[in-house]
Design a protein around this nucleic acid. Structure first.
Length: 486
RNA sequence: GGCGGCUUCGCCAAGUGGACUAAGGCCACGGUUUGCAAAACCGUUACCCUGGGUUCGAAUCCCAGAGCCGCCUCCA
């Protein structure tokens, strides 16, 4: 068994070997925190979370860095774009730092809910301005960047490999119809490393070139270098960032360090909503907070992992409903098995069951090894469940050890690696509350029917027993409400 | 205009040259089980977009066509 990744740089599946044996340095482009996270963020970060989890399961010591972009970036043509963080901050009458704090927390809340492990380091761009300025200076010293009108640009023509990731040719870029002419630039494809702050621009820092702010590709290069070194094992991100963002990162980092920047480039595909592209600029994005109102976070996680990370994912209610039922079936088996475990007797695990467990583990791992084929891995979990359900239904008694072995396998594969199987099912507080509401609703409806039939004894029985349980009923002309008494 | 991708059962989705007479989930229909249900189990459901070609052999490779989509401006 050997892990393989599809490397966007070479466009091939390659055997994964880290630069330093046993250790993996991994960087993933994080969110710009000017709004609540949406399902596109979920797909991206769930995908990379599972990669991190799998690498760790395989025994690698992983350092996972994911930046928080807390400075809004303009397009690299002066005044052509807008700074989204500043714009939002002005709209909401808050400090940019305040806005960014709000949405950073929102981001972590949602990522926690969807069961992503926290990155080891979540560096903020604004906390690394000196590092970014240093990098710019280094590039100027090396003659690869030039200052012009208070800004600094990367001289793309000096980096002959520019375009190697996205498959673009420099002369084609020059002809690109949508690149506006910026007189400060020597060459149209040159990109900003540092931008001069115009008088109204709130977020600004002192620099050797006057007051300004970092260009939008710079932070990833500066921070990955600081925490992971000049060459990363894995760099992940969304497909849409391949050009220009990742291309520019390569240019900056490789020019500065003269070593390869990234060994394995991993790009996840995009989310569509009912077949249409979902994007911040299109305004049709579904926030996770909204999605969580309708679906359990683990359902969304399961739904995401049911598709390969390099395939696009279409978000529709029909597909989510199907996923919801699917994960419920998986969970049901495990709930039953854990219930059985509690009153099983001591003993051993039969060899044939051990063999089966080994078999499904092998199938699962082989799927994961093939560029993290979570879809096939989940299929193995369902196949396993079919067997387990058969055991649960059979008249044969199995030992505590046997059920524990099965549970442990679910814990490893579905829990530790995929993160779709919780350690316990009772802790879902909001879920429990929701169920309680429904259960009381049933009791109230039943009692209502009894009262209509003048079955006072039974209806009072329900009210009194609920009162004992801490639920007080209140009959009003237009219906019955309830509240907790303790 | 340039670059790239996708098209597999009613729906979602793996598989990318040989045990594919195509995984898994959802839905549907039979059956087993059940007091009736539910859950579970068993079974049924695919000429792999079209047309050529390469090959002993193609869903998988090549060419052409149709349809859909992404990137080339910020976006996960």
């Amino acid at each position: 068994m050997a892990l393989k990744f599809y490397n966007s740089l070479t466009k091939k599946k390659e055997l994964f070997t880290p630069l330093h044996e046993g250790r993996v340095n991994m960087y993933v482009c994080g969110p710009t925190v000017y709004d609540h996270p949406h399902i596109g963020h979920a797909k991206s970060y769930v995908s990379f979370d599972v990669i991190v989890r799998y690498l760790r399961y395989l025994g690698y010591k992983v350092r996972y860095v994911q930046n928080i972009t807390d400075v809004g970036h303009l397009t690299d043509d002066a005044d052509a774009g807008e700074d989204k963080i500043i714009k939002r901050a002005q709209r909401d009458h808050v400090e940019p730092a305040e806005l960014v704090e709000t949405y950073t927390r929102s981001y972590f809340d949602d990522m926690d809910a969807i069961n992503n492990l926290r990155p080891d380091i979540s560096p903020r761009a604004t906390a690394h301005i000196p590092e970014q300025i240093e990098l710019v200076e280094k590039l100027i010293e090396k003659g690869l960047a030039y200052a012009s009108g208070g800004s600094v640009y990367f001289d793309v023509r000096k980096f002959k490999e520019y375009g190697k990731l996205s498959g673009r040719k420099q002369d084609e870029l020059e002809a690109g119809a949508r690149i506006e002419i910026n007189p400060e630039k020597k060459y149209p494809a040159d990109f900003a490393l540092w931008k001069k702050a115009e008088p109204g621009h709130i977020m600004r820092w002192k620099s050797p070139w006057g007051e300004g702010f970092p260009g939008w590709h710079l932070e990833c290069s500066a921070m990955s270098m600081k925490y992971l070194g000049a060459t990363l094992d894995i760099h992940g991100g969304g497909l849409e960032n391949m050009f220009p963002h990742h291309e520019c990162e390569i240019a900056q980092s490789e020019s500065a360090n003269s070593v390869p920047f990234v060994r394995y480039w991993l790009h996840n595909n995009m989310v569509t909503v009912n077949g249409q592209k979902m994007g911040k600029s299109l305004g049709n994005f579904i926030t996770l907070k909204d999605a969580f109102k309708k679906y359990h976070p683990l359902t969304i996680r399961f739904f995401i992992l049911n598709t390969h990370y390099r395939s696009p994912l279409d978000f529709s209610n029909e597909a989510l409903d199907a996923a919801d039922k699917g994960i419920e079936r998986l969970h049901n088996t495990i709930k039953h098995l854990r219930a059985r475990l509690n009153f099983a007797k001591d003993g051993t695990t039969p060899p044939d069951i051990n063999e089966k467990l080994e078999h499904y583990k092998k199938v699962f791992m082989e799927a994961m090894d093939e560029d993290i084929n979570t879809s096939a891995a989940i299929a193995a979990l369902f196949d396993l469940s079919k067997e387990v359900n058969t055991l649960l239904n059979s008249a044969q008694e199995y030992s505590k050890k046997c059920w524990e072995d099965i549970d442990s396998l679910y814990q490893q594969l579905g829990g530790d690696i995929l993160g779709i199987i919780p350690k316990t099912f009772s802790t879902g507080a909001s879920n429990e509350a929701d169920t309680l509401t429904k259960v009381i609703g049933v009791l109230i409806d039943t009692r209502c029917e009894l009262r209509k039939a003048k079955q006072w004894q039974l209806s009072d029985f329900i009210r009194n027993k609920l009162m004992e349980a801490g639920i007080a009923l209140d009959d009003k002309p237009d219906g019955t409400t309830w509240k907790r008494t303790k």
